[in-house]
């Protein structure tokens, strides 16, 4: 039961993690495509915002794992 719950929670969090990761990857690719310094600067700035979203979701995953560890 615990394992199943953990799997479901991880599936949800992985799903949530995919959103900012996709934006991050695509945003940088688009900046690179434009080839202009100003576009790249905007891309980096927006990518950093997405990194914050990634960190937030990684933090949530870590918390779940720590809870499981404590319960073991």
């Amino acid at each position: 039961m615990v394992v199943q719950n953990l799997a479901e929670q991880m599936d949800d969090l992985l799903h949530a993690l995919c959103q900012p990761l996709t934006v991050l990857q695509c945003r940088l690719a688009l900046g690179e495509l434009s080839g202009e310094a100003s576009a790249m600067r905007v891309a980096i700035s927006e990518a950093l915002g997405e990194c914050a979203r990634v960190n937030e979701r990684v933090g949530a995953m870590r918390e779940i794992l720590q809870t499981v560890e404590r319960e073991r």
Binding site: C18, Q19, L21, T22, Q25, C26, A29, L30
Partner: peptide, 10 residues
């Protein structure tokens, strides 16, 4: 397509 994906692949 499974996220995350690259813009070039999309």
């Amino acid at each position: 397509m499974l996220k995350p994906f690259s813009f070039h692949e999309l």
